[in-house]
């Protein structure tokens, strides 16, 4: 085994190295999940309660007060399906954008592929999602909401995959920038609030008639993921054009994020 340590001159994604350190993904995720709920009396129940409370709030506002259309399914099912996907994205983004700064003590002392940190931060949000699925199942039963089991096992994982890829990409991008410019610490929560209303989490994309907005929604990977997930219940065929353009965008975001991250990674220890 021979290797060379020198100042970075040629670019690589470092996937091979990432694979050899794969166990660290598990350990970082496991640590973050464990620490997150360790001192909370309700523990992991919070992963279930948070989306539930959000769902109730949004149902009261959007369905009862504003009478927003929910494509023919009960609004709570509609909102929660959007919120679950949205929470992977928003929590994952928040975690990963701050991850390099919160782990700076480790970064300054030990070498391992740095990408593991923001990626595990996203995986932590995914664990929350898995627990939240329990409440989702309960809601489905409560509203006697039927669904296509084949679609459930195909579309849901695909939707999650698109969400996770997008979050990885944007998260690593922001994590890299956050090391250099701490301003992002203040920008990100604001950005997430903004994005919640831009994405069709609480309303249906069908409300838009403007051609341009529909085009943007097609390129929006989170919107695609939500649409995939909802189509399991709504019973209308999926518009694969939308899904494919969303997935394509997710991949572009992923590579842009990893590229930025890898470019600045070497100097994290000097900056963090």
């Amino acid at each position: 085994m021979e290797y060379v340590i020198q100042s970075q001159n040629k670019f690589s994604l470092g996937l091979k190295e990432l694979w050899s350190y794969r166990e660290l993904f598990y350990f970082f995720t496991w640590r973050d999940v464990k620490v997150k709920y360790k001192q909370a009396a309700l523990g992991i129940l919070w992963a279930i309660l948070q989306p539930l409370v959000m769902m109730i709030t949004f149902t009261l506002i959007f369905s009862k007060a504003l009478k927003v259309s929910s494509d023919g399914i009960p609004y709570p099912v509609f909102a929660l399906s959007g919120l679950l996907i949205w929470n992977i994205f928003s929590n994952g983004l928040l975690n990963s954008a701050n991850s390099m700064v919160t782990n700076s003590n480790v970064i300054k002392k030990i070498y391992f592929p740095r990408l593991i940190i923001p990626m595990s931060a996203v995986l932590t949000a995914l664990v929350d999602f898995l627990f939240a699925l329990i409440i989702f199942a309960a809601i489905l039963i409560y509203y006697h909401q039927g669904f296509n089991i084949f679609k459930m096992f195909l579309y849901l994982p695909l939707g999650i995959l698109i969400t996770v890829i997008t979050t990885f990409g944007l998260g690593t991008f922001l994590a890299a920038l956050n090391v250099k410019y701490r301003d992002f610490q203040y920008i990100i929560p604001f950005l997430i609030q903004f994005l919640l209303f831009v994405n069709p989490v609480l309303y249906s994309t069908k409300v838009f008639t403007n051609h341009w907005i529909n085009l943007i929604m097609k390129a929006n990977p989170i919107a695609s993921a939500i649409e995939l997930f909802r189509s399991v219940f709504i019973g209308q065929p999926v518009d694969w054009n939308t899904i494919l353009s969303g997935a394509g965008m997710a991949l572009i975001i992923l590579f842009a994020g990893i590229f930025t991250f890898r470019k600045t990674e070497a100097y994290f220890a000097d900056l963090a």
Binding site: M1, Y3, V4, I5, Q6, S7, K109, I110, Y111, A269
Partner: peptide, 30 residues
């Protein structure tokens, strides 16, 4: 490999582990 050199290089022929400070990654809640 925590920080890269400005110039020059190092050729290594074995797995390196560093103990720059013990207890790295320790978390008080665990």
């Amino acid at each position: 490999k925590i920080t890269p050199p400005t110039t020059g290089k190092i050729i290594g022929r074995g797995r390196i582990a560093s103990l720059l400070e013990v207890g790295t990654g320790f978390h008080p809640e665990l």
